[in-house]
């Protein structure tokens, strides 16, 4: 049995589909009560990981436990403790919102009365009371996702799995989902979340596992990952070529690498380390030389930069690569 404090432990998971290796020795530990973001492009193995951990798919090698229960040997017992909301809203279009949740409650064997009460409770919590008795067919994409998420919460699971919960949603519904998930997490639910949106991982996850080609290639908080990549830089724009040259000279002591200068826009990029202190220091030095600065800022790497550096390709992928990824996943 895993340490009590670890809700999810995966060691060396391997899953092959014929000659395609979907998981290639994936390791993952998610402490109880925390949010782990699984970040990766299409086909990286995110969905396969979720399917193995939620007992939908048997892995070929390695070992995985969720709340101490083995995903293969204790599968049935485990299913009582987890909730899953998949990539598409797996709700029944012809049933009403209430009927959908009631059905899930019955299948968790909560009993007739409890299933109904729980369904009403969740509909209220997810702002679906008005639509509760209408067939889901008429729901918006955001409402469907909220209902699907509610379905995953019917049995008050100890561990929740959300596979790309906002994929395909418009920006407004996405923000709505983020609020709902943040609230949930504040209540102490352990959550494994997959996403290809860097912003989403940044906003919701305590820790992020970057996954590519079926392996975790980096692990840490959003800030740790950004630090790991480095690439903090001071960016400033001055008014003339002369000022640009002076600024370059003044800032050279702060630079940890080559300063680049765009002659046309008089824009300088200075690789630095040390955060806001460097920015203050830089401004003082420029001011002392009376160099007129039009714009200055400290740019930290975004998770996009992190992703690009770690995987050698941008998140999300495109074209053929993405299509192939779909099949692999």
């Amino acid at each position: 049995m895993a340490r009590m404090a670890d809700a999810i432990v995966a060691e060396g998971l391997v899953k092959r589909y014929g000659s395609v290796v979907a998981l290639d020795g994936l390791d993952l530990v998610v402490p109880e009560g925390t949010v782990m973001g699984l970040l990766g492009p299409n086909g990286a193995g995110k969905t396969t990981t979720v399917r193995v951990l939620t007992t939908l798919l048997e892995h070929d090698e390695g070992k995985a436990t969720v709340t101490g229960l083995d995903v293969v040997a204790d599968a049935k017992q485990l299913r009582r403790r987890i909730g899953l909301s998949g990539q598409y809203a797996a709700v029944d279009e012809n049933l009403t919102g209430f009927e959908n949740l009631d059905m899930v409650g019955r299948l968790y064997h909560l009993g007739k009365k409890n299933s109904r009460e729980r369904a009403r409770e969740l509909l209220e919590r997810f702002d679906l009371v008005e639509a509760a008795d209408r067939p889901v067919k008429g729901y918006s994409g955001g409402m469907r996702r909220r209902l699907d998420l509610a379905g995953a919460l019917v049995a008050k699971p100890a561990v929740l799995f959300l596979d790309e919960p906002t994929t395909g949603l418009d920006p407004r519904s996405r923000l709505g989902m983020w609020d709902v998930i943040s609230e949930l997490v504040a209540g102490g639910t352990t959550l494994l979340l997959t996403t290809q949106y860097l912003e989403e991982a940044d906003r919701l996850a305590d820790k992020i596992a970057v996954i590519d080609h079926g392996k975790v290639i980096a692990l840490g908080t959003a800030n740790e990952l950004k630090d790991q990549v480095g690439g903090e830089r001071l960016e400033l724009t001055v008014g003339s070529a002369q000022d640009a040259a002076s600024a370059k000279a003044v800032l050279t002591p702060l630079a940890i690498g080559d300063i680049t200068l765009d002659e046309r826009s008089h824009r300088l990029t200075v690789p630095v380390t040390g955060g806001a202190d460097v920015l203050v220091d830089g401004i003082r030095r420029l001011d002392a030389e009376s160099i007129k600065v039009l714009d200055i800022g400290l740019r930290r790497p975004t998770l996009d930069d992190v992703f690009l550096t770690l995987t050698g390709h941008a998140a999300g992928g495109n074209g053929a690569e993405e299509k192939q990824g779909e099949q692999e996943a």
Binding site: T54, L84, L107
Partner: peptide, 17 residues
Amino acid sequence: QKGVIDRFRSLPMARSA
């Protein structure tokens, strides 16, 4: 196709149900 079976299979219900 709609993922409904995934949801069912993640529930502690009988396999034949």
